[in-house]
Amino acid sequence: MLRLEQLTKVYKTGDKALTDINLSVEAGQVVGLIGPSGAGKSTLIRCVNRLVEPSAGKIWLGDQELAGLSKSALRRQRRRIGMIFQEYALVERLTVMENVLSGRLGYVPFWRSLTRRYPADDIENAFRFLDRVGLADHADKRADALSGGQRQRVGIARALAQEPDLLLIDEPTASLDPKTSRQIMRLIIELCNERGLPAIINIHDVPLAQAFVNRIIGLNQGRVVFDGAPVDLSDEVLTRIYGEEDWVALRGKPGQENEDVEAPALDAHRLEAAQ
């Protein structure tokens, strides 16, 4: 579904953020992207929808190549790529409904978005997605009146409203508490499975990633250093990704954000069983 060929990004400052990334993601596959800060995780997913312009390489989404597209053609293709952000990136002063409907911006003409007169189908779908993420009663509230977990659910509904073929998810749980983090991850995985959606999730929390995704890619200094199943993440592999660290101690005594590792693992098993 998504194929990156020789993707490279060099910033104006000369920093090489990504070097010759080659990878492909099949339909329905959820990929966890892990790596230390500055490894290029964020740059990688932003290159896919060209919020960051790649320096070289090709991006295939289905049969469409994205890296060489003109501005207007790129806008049409961006509609196919839903994005979920770390700090939710909702328009804080607009209502929840307007935020969800903003996922349709690429489909409607300007006057419709300006007067908030969206097509009836769009509105019906927006209500359906809001119900799906558990916020059916919050449509008329302002986004800044919601809690962190609720905001991220709105962010997910916005991405769904695009009817995307691919989800890019940037640190979805970094601003959330452990319990909400797992609820959000579970919701994302369920939705991807329901719709056969491929997704790339940037995530810094390795146990959480292992618990939920079915493929993990490790990035270090802009290069892919690991690509495999979550169970293959050995200490040796983690050292290759993150550098030297006492991994056994870290796993045995989980930090604040990954206490209670078994529970999500169980959830993941249940999810796999439900497939």
């Binding site: 409904m97 908030r116 189908d121 019906e124 779908n125 209500f127 119900d131 008329d140």
Partner: peptide, 11 residues
């Protein structure tokens, strides 16, 4: 198939 509103006006 649950029915959802097909119109929405900003409050």
């Amino acid at each position: 198939t649950q029915r959802y509103p097909r119109t929405w006006r900003r409050p």
